[in-house]
Design a protein around this nucleic acid. Structure first.
Lengths: 227, 227
DNA sequence: CCCTTGTGTTATACATATATAAAAATGTCC
DNA sequence: GGACATTTTTATATATGTATAACACAAGGG
């Protein structure tokens, strides 16, 4: 037996049932989500070894779920979709999906592709813990330690720290940070708010917040983390 | 530029030609093999970053090529085949193929899947870095190193350095530099200001600012960077 | 030799960007 | 609907970048 856990995300119960059977005959444990919101929540709380994601979801769209997951979830995400347009496939793969299978799919092929994804991921088992200074950031488990001690972050703070961690060394412009943290559709000018959150991040992660060494200001441009 | 090398294995010249074009437009270098024997030999001697393998080959069969390659070749192998039976796909994936695309395939999807394979394999194509003397300039990330150590620039300084880096070796006139850095709509004469910024750039990048070797004066004309 | 012109350096005033605390608004969970 | 945590807004102090002026220096020409 095998305790590999796979999350199935699809709004149609019939397809979920089919997938559950296909996966359980291979010895995997399964959990299910019917909406994008559920998918995000369950991935965060169960941390499955892999996610099977339908693109056509009610509520948050599948593509959006993919993008949001990839902000911190490093394990395989396989897209299962009726959409067969080249555009959809290219966008999904470039957004971080590990494979794309159009429905209706063949069960044994699906099983083989899942074996492949899990095998490949196990090989390269890239350490999802990012170390910067005396900080260690575990994006998958949302755990940040400052020389061992666990720090607590609000969701906005963590979104920002995660963005910096994934782009350490790079200079991120104000606009880019604002877009990534608050989304594209924010019309209000968030630059003052950004400074407030930078300050609260520094208060938590910097050895001496008044003399930043990790999260540096690039005046008139943006901020840079690490290096 | 990109020196990633990809081996194309197919017995039909027309398909090879199509693949060469699809790959070269993405910036990859290509080599070609028409038989299984050739494929094995070329993989061994050129050690390409990835192999695109047709299953229906004269001589040694594609499956056999896959098995033999996997005895030592760890990089991605993508199968391109007209065979669409589930059995073929499952066997190929379980034999160590990284992906399986049935012909006729869609070019942009193929390109996306190749990007995926190369990315997953950890060969992230890093951003272009300009090296001049002991300086390395990463324009995209605004990172400049002087023999390893990271230098700090204000936005005007960086705009100017970036302009020089993108035009290294060329003589840039005072007027041209001023227009590029401050824009066309500046009425005040910035030539004095230009000298001030040249000085502060030299103070940061030159080994000995009093004897410039990187950022040279072309009297009455302008300045020249590098070589 | 002195004057002119082009260039390099330093100092300073000013505008603007940034940091921080604290108050107000907005959620969220029982 | 109230207690709490979080986010946004407001207010104000501080820091930083830039333009400009003032001066120094070298080269060349009358």
């Amino acid at each position: 037996m095998n305790d590999t856990l796979i999350l199935i995300v699809d709004d149609e119960p019939a397809i979920r049932r089919l997938l559950v059977i296909a996966l359980q005959t291979e010895g995997y444990k399964t959990i299910e989500a019917a909406t994008g919101e559920e998918a995000l929540a369950m991935t965060a709380s169960y941390n499955p070894a892999m996610v099977l994601l339908d693109l056509g979801l009610p509520g948050i769209d599948g593509k959006e779920v993919l993008n949001r997951l990839r902000e911190w979830y490093a394990r395989p995400i396989m897209i299962l979709s009726v959409r067969n347009s080249e555009e959809d496939i290219v966008v999904a793969l470039d957004s971080g999906a590990n494979d794309y299978l159009t429905k209706p799919f063949r069960v044994r092929e699906l099983q083989a592709r899942i074996r492949l994804s899990l095998r490949k991921h196990g090989e390269t088992d890239s350490d999802p813990v990012i170390d910067v200074g005396n900080l260690s950031i575990d994006l998958a488990n949302r755990i940040v330690r400052k020389s061992g001690e666990i720090l607590r972050f609000t969701s906005t703070e963590f979104a920002m720290l995660s963005l910096f961690a994934r782009n350490r060394g790079r200079v991120l412009t104000h606009q880019y940070i604002i877009r990534e943290v608050w989304g594209d559709l924010v019309y209000a000018d968030q630059s003052q708010n950004l400074r407030v959150f930078i300050a609260s991040l520094r208060k938590k992660i910097e050895p001496d917040p008044s003399e930043p060494t990790l999260l540096l200001t690039e005046s008139r441009i943006g901020y840079r983390f690490g290096l």
